[in-house]
Simulated assay, not measured.
Amino acid sequence: MARWLSLLALVASPFLFDGTAHALRCGTRLVVTGDPIHYVRSICGDPASITTSTVSRTRTVGSRIVAGTVIADSVTVTVAIETWIYDFGPRRFMEELTFEDGTLVRQRPLSYGTRTAIDPPVRRMHERVAIVDRRRTIV
């Protein structure tokens, strides 16, 4: 019986987890690969940093045979790339999101976030502090 369970687990494991599935949770909603850039911003808000660049890529669009020689037809396209980093504070991992032409193509967890992402500003002596929604605000 144990041998059959082991075999079943071995056969079913690629279908249960393929290693590429990763979703970013923002509040109660999930952001997954393929989501448009405006949707991610509306769900998660503004990122801590944005890096933009462009990359030229050459792609083969077809091939033909001329006098016994294969000739490949290719086209060069320019792709706009934006890399966003979300910092959720020291208790969660930061997330790096990569967009190509406005579509999320890759998500990557980074190290733990920084404390400055959630810390209030330092108060000066003789300033009153009121607690509003569990955050410190200077009154």
Rank of each mutant, 00 (worst) to 15 (best):
R59T: 06
S63D: 06
G34V: 03
I50K: 14
A48N: 14
G68D: 10
S49V: 01
D46L: 05
R64L: 00
T33V: 11
S56L: 12
Y39D: 00
I43R: 11
T52A: 07
S53H: 08
C44M: 05
S42H: 12
R41L: 12
I71D: 03
T33S: 11
T58Q: 04
L30P: 01
L30R: 09
D35Q: 03
I65W: 09
T52D: 08
T54K: 12
V40E: 08
I65V: 15
T52H: 08
I65K: 10
S53N: 12
T28V: 02
T58D: 06
S49A: 12
I65Q: 14
S42Y: 06
H38T: 06
T69Q: 13
I37E: 05
V32C: 15
A48S: 15
R41V: 10
Y39S: 08
S56D: 13
T54H: 13
V61H: 00
S49N: 11
C44G: 09
I43K: 11
I50W: 10
V66R: 08
P36S: 04
S42T: 13
P36C: 11
S49F: 03
T60F: 01
G34E: 05
T52V: 09
S42W: 01
V55N: 10
G45T: 05
T28F: 12
R59I: 14
S53W: 00
S49Q: 15
T60K: 06
S49I: 14
A67H: 08
R64E: 13
D35F: 00
T69P: 00
D46K: 13
T58R: 13
G68N: 05
A48C: 08
I50F: 04
R64D: 03
I37C: 01
I65P: 05
S49Y: 03
R29L: 07
R29V: 04
V61L: 06
D35V: 03
V32W: 00
G62E: 11
T33E: 10
D35S: 08
H38P: 00
T51Q: 15
A48E: 14
D35H: 02
R64Q: 11
R59G: 04
Y39Q: 10
G45P: 05
V66G: 02
G45M: 01
V61W: 07
T28C: 07
T69S: 00
S56V: 12
R57I: 15
S53F: 05
T51D: 13
P36K: 12
V55M: 08
